Computed example of a mutant assay.
Amino acid sequence: MSIEIITTEELQEKLKKGENLELVDVREDEEVEFGMIPGAKHIKMGEIPANLDYFDKDKEYIFICRSGRRSENVCYYLQDQGYKVRNMLGGMLDWSGETK
């Protein structure tokens, strides 16, 4: 089954419109020090299985990593568990919006 995606441009548009999005950054600690998309929650990829109680099956989550590959793996894992997920294509390498 394929994973729904969102481009960095689409995500920037949604944030500009003030949409309430569930963003999860799955990069390592040293990677997020260089900046995360405002409002994103940081849960490292390896800690996702231990944090399943954070996720709500009624919400859709957008996953973010450096290039989009790790977040895609997380999306497959969570989709298999019945969660609604979307992968940010291109990851933070393609992100030109605000970070903090």
Rank of each mutant, 00 (worst) to 15 (best):
K16Q: 15
M45W: 04
L89C: 07
I43Q: 11
T7F: 09
D80C: 02
I62F: 03
L23N: 02
K41A: 00
K59Y: 03
Y76P: 05
K100N: 15
Y54I: 07
G35H: 10
L11S: 09
G46L: 09
D80I: 07
S71D: 04
I64Q: 00
I37Q: 01
G18E: 11
N51V: 10
G97S: 11
E33F: 06
M88C: 08
G91T: 05
K84L: 05
C75I: 05
L93Y: 15
L89A: 12
E10S: 12
F63G: 01
G68R: 08
I48P: 01
I3P: 03
L93K: 15
D25Y: 04
G46T: 11
G91R: 06
R66W: 07
E98T: 15
E13P: 04
Q12H: 11
G97K: 09
Y83N: 00
A50E: 15
A50T: 14
P49R: 12
D53E: 14
F55W: 02
K59P: 01
L15Y: 10
K44R: 12
R27G: 08
Y83T: 01
G68T: 04
M45C: 02
R69Y: 06
M36E: 01
T7W: 08
K41G: 00
M1Y: 04
R70I: 05
K41F: 03
M36T: 06
T7S: 15
Q81R: 12
P49I: 08
R27D: 10
S67N: 11
Q12T: 07
I48S: 03
V26E: 02
Y61R: 03
P49L: 09
A40G: 00
I43K: 12
M36S: 00
L15V: 09
L21H: 02
T8M: 09
L93I: 15
G68C: 07
S67W: 07
D53I: 12
L15F: 10
S2K: 12
E30G: 01
I48L: 03
V85L: 08
V32D: 08
L11N: 10
R66Y: 12
E31F: 07
Q81K: 15
W95I: 00
K59Q: 09
R70M: 07
G39W: 00
V85E: 07
I5T: 15
I43G: 11
K17R: 14
R70K: 13
E13I: 13
L89G: 01
R70W: 06
Q12R: 13
L23E: 03
V32Q: 04
I64F: 01
E72K: 11
G91V: 05
Y61K: 04
K14N: 06
T8R: 14
F63Q: 02
I5S: 15
G91F: 06
L23M: 06
C65G: 08
Q12L: 14
K44V: 09
L93H: 13
Y54A: 07
D29P: 13
G97V: 09
E33C: 06
I3E: 05
M1P: 07
E9S: 14
I64C: 00
V32N: 05
I6H: 04
N51C: 10
L52I: 14
M1S: 11
Y54S: 04
G90M: 09
V26N: 03
K57M: 05
E33N: 12
C65S: 13
D53A: 14
R70D: 03
P49N: 11
V26F: 03
E13G: 10
L11T: 07
E13D: 14
L78I: 05
D58F: 00
L15H: 11
G97I: 09
N87M: 07
